[in-house]
Design a binder for these strands. Sequence first.
DNA 1: GTACAGATTGAG
DNA 2: TCAATCTGTACT
Length: 187
Amino acid sequence: MSERLKRDFFIQPTLKVAKALLGKNLIRIYQGKRLSGKIVEVEAYIGPQDKASHGYLGKRTKRNQAEFLVGGHIYIYLVYGMYWQLNISTEKEGEPTCVLIRALEPLEEIIDSTNGPGKLCRALKLNKSFYAEDLCQSKRIWLEEGEKINPSQIVKAPRVGIDCAGPYWSSIPWRFYLKNNKFVSKK
DNA sequence: GTACAGATTGAG
DNA sequence: TCAATCTGTACT
């Protein structure tokens, strides 16, 4: 059993948090069971300057308000009417920044595949009830220290699924994943 | 009240 | 390569 990540961890610069999240363990308590997985793939979304972010130009709505919360809160969002995206807000209150969790390596009790944002949420039984949940206080989901990751293991790549944001933003390497990990989403 | 986009997935 | 599928948002 490792130590739970504290608020300090999440209020660092988003890109730093994104890289630091690789290798951490995500713990989800479901029906008395402990579902957990190691984070192997993430993407950073940095609000006002990021056209692909819901917080672009400081646009703040009911839908994306969790993205503005102080670091450590869950921003969960439904896309295409069927898939949930699990994000973790970063930095301080009022900053529309977050990190999208794209893939986990299953550790405990997880039977569904987790190599994609939608499948990951399905495997962990995550839904809208987790909107704005505080990872620093929640009793049903949180993050723990995990495997120590060597910086050379971290691969930078362009983000996925946001081509509509334009060639410039969709090419920025704000996606990070662990080298040679087979649970990283393909493509 | 209605229109519409959307950080995906999996089947063909 | 492309369609499925639905909630919140924005607009009338």
